[in-house]
Design a protein around this nucleic acid. Structure first.
Length: 460
DNA sequence: TCTGGGGTCCTGTCGCCA
DNA sequence: TCTGTGGCGACAGGACCC
């Protein structure tokens, strides 16, 4: 999908179409998640600190991400991809590999192009958004093709032309070559894919290590045999928070770690998982990051156990000077717990000690009660109808009243505690055919499994 | 300029054990 | 009994991706 988060916001907010839109964290330490193509003209791009983006594009619209909406749209697109093939590998909310051959959707160049064109049309019809398609004989090449196809295009890499195509490209084009590897290679005099291939496998292994060296040499020769894998097991679950201001108070640090442990357990349980290894992550005032981990004898999803482990790990960390980020994670996952095993062995004991208050403790902490209006949030006003928060401050909130299928709307300002104003669910971007003629208001699918797609591979 | 959040994978080191 | 070696799990850090 092209500039996915920003495109969704433009589709749901008519007044933002054709304008610079930046989606990301709006706090003092936020970064850009996605910038619309109009914002990219100013030099704004993903992962850039928000403060810098605001200097480059002061007149852009700055919005917080609405993940539940993106997820719902992602699921619609993933469903379209699964119509093409059972082998769909989601990479993120807005990208996926599809093995067209396995689904019988394509067997040569022409059929692949046809499938790609139809997919793009279907995505537009179902979501109102544009997606780009890269067609090639391997995942690496399909990915490169889809990058070339953006925005709103389709690129097919013809078999036999791969090496010639890759040769002049910068090494950074290849997946897995980031800033560090790119620098490393540049210092060794390697800047293009051709030079990578010429360097030879042994030299690359010497420079980058075994796994990376072999993999990169293969990619430089356009060799990539990795299959499209539909089901991937989760390996870890984690939550982390960056604080607007560094935390110095050791007591507060401890409390935050407990809170994060509870949130992590909430996620773990939500996924029906438990884990053996507890990981504490601390980013200090100077951005140095350290992790401490502890492996238990068996997997657990018990908040008390995970809180205690996280607290022990914190004991071994020096936080003088302040911390800017804390995180708690669990890995070594299983879909059962050590307690389950005990329960099987001792059914009588399990019955006499019913699950105590731990679950409540986890649930209770989730929702803050305070009323907050965040830029981009959907709202409904008793008199003016559906709109979105354009900004808030000084006890006022500014709302623009418009819907995905209306004309750009008017702006009105209210007191933040105006009783006529309430939070609302996002409206669908495209007229929902199923809901038309029914008394139910149109709404997005709440649960369907899957995620969004961009790349497709085929072996013509 | 001042760096999010959620992941995956790889490497080096250390201690234990056969 | 002593020494060497290799495998392996745990742990910490780093690179990368979206």
């Amino acid at each position: 999908m092209d500039a996915f988060f920003a495109s969704v916001e433009q589709a749901s907010k008519p007044s933002l179409r054709g304008k610079a839109v930046v989606v990301g964290g709006l706090g003092p330490r936020g970064v850009v998640a996605t910038a619309s193509y109009e914002a990219r003209v100013f030099g704004v791009h993903s992962a850039m600190p928000m403060a810098q983006a605001r200097r480059l594009a002061p007149n852009a619209a700055y919005l917080v991400p609405r993940f539940s909406l993106y997820r719902a749209i992602s699921e619609q697109v993933m469903a379209l991809l699964r119509e093409l093939s059972p082998l769909v590998e989601p990479l993120s909310l807005d990208e996926a590999f599809v093995d067209l051959e396995a689904g019988g959707a394509a067997w040569d160049e022409e059929s692949a192009r046809r499938a790609g064109r139809k997919l793009r049309a279907d995505i537009r019809a179902v979501t109102g958004l544009t997606g780009s398609v890269g067609l090639a004989a391997s995942k690496m090449l399909a990915k490169i093709a889809s990058e070339q196809a953006k925005p709103d295009g389709l690129v097919l890499i013809e078999p036999g032309t791969e090496r010639a195509l890759l040769a002049p490209m910068p090494v950074r084009t290849l997946p897995g070559v980031g800033p560090a590897t790119g620098d490393h290679l540049r210092r060794a005099g390697i800047t293009t894919v051709e030079e990578l291939a010429e360097a030879g496998e042994d030299e690359l292994v010497r420079l980058l290590g075994k796994a990376h060296g072999h993999a990169l040499y293969a990619m430089a020769l356009a060799r990539d045999e990795r299959p499209v894998v539909a089901e991937r097991e989760t390996k870890s679950v984690s939550v982390e928070d960056t604080y607007d201001v560094d935390i110095h108070d050791r007591l507060r640090v401890g409390l935050e770690v407990q809170r994060l442990a509870d949130r992590c357990v909430g996620r773990l349980r939500g996924a029906g998982l438990s884990g053996r290894t507890i990981v504490l992550k601390v980013r200090r005032y100077d951005f140095s990051t350290l992790t401490r981990s502890e492996t238990l004898r068996g997997p657990t999803d018990d908040p008390a156990v995970i809180r205690e482990a996280a607290a022990r790990l914190l004991d071994s960390v020096d936080t003088t000077g302040g911390v800017r980020l804390l995180g708690v994670g669990v890995s070594g996952l299983a879909d059962y717990t050590q307690e389950d095993l005990f329960a099987q062995a001792l059914p009588a004991r399990a019955a006499e000690a019913p699950e105590e208050t731990v679950t409540e403790a986890v649930v209770e902490r989730v929702e803050p009660v305070e009323r907050q209006w965040r830029a981009g949030q959907d709202v409904r006003h008793a008199e003016y109808g559906h709109g979105w928060v354009q900004g808030s401050g000084l006890g006022r909130v500014t709302v623009r009243f418009e819907t995905p299928r209306s004309e750009p709307g008017r702006v009105r300002t209210f007191f933040v505690d105006d009783p006529a104003l309430e939070g609302a669910d996002p409206l669908p971007l495209v007229a929902d055919l199923a809901a038309q003629g029914s008394s139910e208001p149109a709404s997005l699918p709440k649960s369907r499994s899957g995620t969004v797609g961009g790349e497709a591979t085929s072996r013509p």
